[in-house]
Design a protein around this nucleic acid. Structure first.
Lengths: 212, 212
DNA sequence: TGTGTTGCTGAACGTTATTTCAGTATAGCG
DNA sequence: CGCTATACTGAAATAACGTTCAGCAACACA
């Protein structure tokens, strides 16, 4: 009585999840059969009984009454919460997404949630001329390859910083957006780019106009 | 042929949304009937036809094939609601949260979603020195009473603008955060403050450092 | 060589669900 | 007052859906 899911069963489970996501409701037994070329409704019925026995779905005798259990999510390609983790600190030699390191989850647009990304709270005003302020929460895409002039999160000497990215021959220039600060140049191997900043959120609850 | 939703129709719509959220799939006509004590399936069927005609749902002839449209969310009591409506235009004499006026829903922190608030896309760079840029999406709290120096959304001469708020004796000064622009003073009765800006979101997908 | 699991066919049955048709009652509008 | 929209009843037809029973083939295992 193997508790693992077979490839065939996973395919069925996946189709159910897709149907729920795209149509808004689960498929019927007949619809599953059509998708997989299973002529007899009982062929599908067997799959559903097995998936239920193994704890991936729950169902009743009513039409389209399949529900995915939390366990099912693990067997699926990807399940989105439309939220990204807010990382406490970015440090070398430490798994970025370790659970102890996640302070909370930040709701973001589904488009962003689908990415391999995380959130970070900005410290300091080195990017103020790019209109990124201390306290802003930035969304960092880990998969996007940084291009010149991109705003990136980079790890230098155990310290995470947000800067404009200017790669050079064997070196990397990290340029602040603040006239009071100087660009810094490091050997490429001393800089580890964690991702590209693709979005930000700011709280203005107590913001006021500057005195004049 | 009123395009507005009646209380009865809203109740049915709400039950459908609840069913989807709690059970994972939409109710059948019979289930809706049981919930509301409607004996004849045709009683419910009429409701569904009306809801479809008014654009709140989409359905096919298959079992449980009701889908909620984006428009439906507006008619609901405030569902899942960790999201705020993005308003297309702010105009005088026009209900701000009219359903036709909601472009989409923006996911926000639960703390913000609980407020009586809406989202707006910023046009122009009059607040650039406050680090609010064209294209940014701002969250506007309708219940917060504006204090001096708050950033507010104000309606002046049929036009919605984002400015610093400086009330004076019988007049209101709206001050931009842009050295190139002049403050403007209006009689208080000509300015209608829609709310206070409490948060913003920005998309940097294509952002780059300025040429130097 | 038997035993169990997976993955089906095929047929039949009963129930659930949707749709249509013919009406009824009430309320608001001009 | 007639007209329209809302909100239903009641009955009946049909299509969709779930369930059960009997049985087969391939494979792993022991």
């Amino acid at each position: 009585m193997a508790q693992e899911i077979t490839p065939r069963q996973a395919a069925v489970l996946n189709f159910i999840a897709e149907s729920i996501e795209k149509l808004g409701f689960p498929p019927t037994i007949q619809e599953i059969g059509q998708r997989f070329g299973i002529v007899s409704t009982n062929g599908v019925f067997d799959h559903l009984k097995t998936l239920e026995r193994k704890g991936f779905i729950e169902r009743s005798s009513k039409a389209r009454s399949i529900r995915l259990t939390p366990k099912a999510a693990a067997g699926l390609v990807r399940r989105h919460a439309d939220a990204l983790p807010l990382i406490g600190r970015v440090a070398a030699g430490y798994p970025l997404l370790a659970m102890e390191n996640i302070e909370e989850y930040i709701p973001v647009a589904p488009r962003l949630a689908r990415k391999n990304a995380f959130c970070l709270r900005v410290t300091g005003d080195s990017m103020i001329d790019a209109h990124i302020l201390e306290g802003d929460i930035i969304v960092v895409d880990r998969d996007r390859r940084p291009a010149t002039k991109d705003i990136v999160v980079a790890l230098v000497e155990e310290e995470a910083t947000v800067k404009y990215y200017y790669p050079q021959n064997g070196f990397v220039e990290l340029r602040p957006a603040n006239a009071a600060l100087q660009p810094m140049i490091f050997p490429a191997e001393e800089v580890s780019v964690q991702g590209v900043v693709i979005s930000l959120q700011r709280d203005l609850g107590t913001a006021s106009a500057p005195a004049f």
